[in-house]
Each structure stands twice: as structure tokens, then as C-alpha cells.
């Protein structure tokens, strides 16, 4: 149903030249759901919606807006719409050049990203999600989903509970052993729609801030540094962890920071078009 509506609506957007391109999801030949860019009406029948539409498509917005003059249509889940709010607040995108096709979402299934989910279980972030509709959209698609899973704050698993109570030394040991697996492929950074500095601090050629080796010391500065840069900005889409070939528990790291931001600064990233309170604003001449 939703698939059909997305296809029809995308087709009309392209026909009426409202947008130059629609970013959405398709199912590839191996039955894997993946992003697709549709700029021809004839290709709109490739667009789909299913519970494997995990990718946060907003990661492509900046490049696509640079490459085109016109407007971009984008299929947006409720959680992903928070990213658009953060990107908007940070002046990284021009909201007026977007045409947001909001999808009513019943949650995305857990599973190895790369292949389709077969566990039948909702992702952890979905169990704790309090949105069924995007926060901002130009057109809404969806019936009226009866939410089976109400926001559930008890979703923290055994590991999260252990981390909450663990001593600083134990926590450090846990995180270092996670970061030790890192091969510095930077997939976490590349999959993150909010991690888009033109030159990444951790990959500067002068290596001032951190070395390029996949050693405990350098991996630690990369991951902790990246986490700090996302504090108050990360909306918890979980793409970093989904992309990680080494299955490093980055989602948990971001959850911990989001909780701190809420407790200390009463800030939840992306619920409004508002900068994180820990962002420093440099005024004129500063």
C-alpha cells in the first residue's frame, strides 16, 4: 500500500517538475533493500517501502543539493526527520529545496544490515521511538498505524544496565576492547548524515590530533572524539553501527551521550529546529 502511494506520488512530483530527483528505497537483485535515486518517471516503479528501509537517506542530501539546481524529493521516516531538523538548524541544508515525503512508520526490523532482516524483531531504537510520523514533511503517506509497541524505556539490555553501574575503569576496558577491532574504514563516519565536515579532523594529513594507525591509542581518540562531536546532535538513527563491518557498539555510545544531554541540558536532538546547547556560536569578528 505505502509502496504504491510512494510510487504514484514520486511519479507526479517528477511529472510536474516539482523535484529533479526522488531519493527513496528499492529492493536489489539479491532482495536487499537499499537507497535509490529516481530522476525518471519511468523508474518510479522501483521505489518500495518495507520494514528493512533502515538507511537514513538524509546522508545523501548535501551532495545531491550541490549537484542539482532544483528541489530534491526524499522519503523520510519519522526518526530521519530529526536529522533534517538538525541539518537545518546548522545551516547545512536549505529546507526550501527539499520536498519531504513523510512515511508513517511501524518500526524497522533488526537484522544484519547487509542482508534483509529475518529476525522479525524491531530494532532497539524503534522500541524506544516515540514518533510514528515525521516532525516535518511536505506530504504524508500512511494509513493509521496502530502502534503495537509503545515507547518503552525499559529496552536497555543487559549490557547497557551493566555499563550504567560499572566503574570508570571497567567501562574504559569495555570501550577499548570494542575500539580495538576498528579497522579505520570510516564507514561509521561516512554513513552518518551529521558527520560531514569537509576535512575530517581525524584524517588531517598533518596527523596533529590523532594518528592513522588502527591501534588502541589512535582508535580511542577517533571514536571518543567523533562521539563528542555528535553529542547533542546525534538523533540515534544507528547507521554508524549498522555500517560497521566489525560490529562495534557505537549505538550504545551515542545512547549514553544522548541520555547525558537530556539529563544535563534538557536537550533532545532534532525534535525542533534548534542547535545543540553545547554548540559554540562564533559571531562576527570572533
Amino acid at each position: 500500500m505505502i509502496t504504491k502511494k510512494i510510487q504514484e506520488y514520486a511519479s507526479s512530483l517528477l511529472a510536474d517538475q516539482v523535484v529533479d530527483c526522488v531519493i527513496g528505497y528499492e529492493v536489489g537483485p539479491r532482495r536487499t533493500t537499499r537507497p535509490i535515486f529516481v530522476d525518471q518517471q519511468a523508474d518510479t516503479d522501483r521505489l518500495v517501502w518495507n520494514q528493512n528501509c533502515s538507511h537514513n537517506l538524509t546522508v545523501y542530501l548535501r551532495q545531491k543539493l550541490n549537484d542539482t539546481e532544483g528541489r530534491i524529493g526524499i522519503v523520510v521516516k519519522p526518526c530521519d526527520s530529526k536529522t533534517i531538523n538538525v541539518l537545518g538548524a546548522e545551516n547545512r541544508i536549505d529546507r526550501d529545496r527539499l520536498h519531504i515525503i513523510g512515511i508513517e512508520c511501524e518500526g524497522i526490523l533488526e537484522g544484519n544490515v547487509k542482508q534483509n532482516a529475518d529476525s522479525g524483531e524491531l530494532q532497539r531504537r524503534c522500541l524506544a521511538c516515540d514518533l510514528t510520523e515525521p516532525l516535518d514533511m511536505d506530504y504524508m503517506i500512511g494509513g493509521s498505524i496502530e502502534r503495537k509497541n509503545l515507547p518503552d524505556n525499559s529496552t536497555s539490555n543487559k549490557l547497557s544496565r551493566w555499563l550504567e553501574k560499572a566503574t570508570a575503569d571497567d567501562r574504559l576496558e569495555y570501550w577499548l576492547s570494542e575500539f580495538d577491532r576498528c579497522i579505520r574504514c570510516y564507514a561509521c563516519r561516512q554513513a552518518c548524515p551529521l558527520c560531514d565536515c569537509p576535512t575530517c579532523l581525524f584524517e588531517r594529513e598533518d596527523s596533529i590530533w590523532t594518528g592513522s594507525s588502527a591501534t588502541t591509542k589512535d582508535n580511542r581518540s577517533f571514536h571518543l572524539g567523533r562521539a563528542f562531536h555528535l553529542a547533542g546532535r546525534c538523533i540515534g538513527c544507528g547507521e554508524c553501527q549498522r555500517a560497521c563491518p566489525m560490529d562495534i557498539n557505537l549505538g550504545e555510545l551515542n545512547r549514553v551521550l544522548a541520555r547525558e544531554m537530556e539529563e544535563q541540558f534538557h536537550h533532545r536532538a532534532g525534535y525542533t529546529v534548534e542547535l545543540s546547547p553545547i554548540t559554540t556560536i562564533l559571531g562576527e569578528g570572533r
Binding site: I36, F37, C185, Y186, A187, Q190, A191, P245
Partner: peptide
């Protein structure tokens, strides 16, 4: 078009 420019494939 959908490539994220990460380096997993090579690594």
C-alpha cells in the same frame, strides 16, 4: 550514486 565513500570494500 548510493556509495557512501567508506572503505569497507577495500579493507
Amino acid at each position: 550514486e548510493r556509495c557512501l565513500s567508506c572503505r569497507i570494500c577495500a579493507y
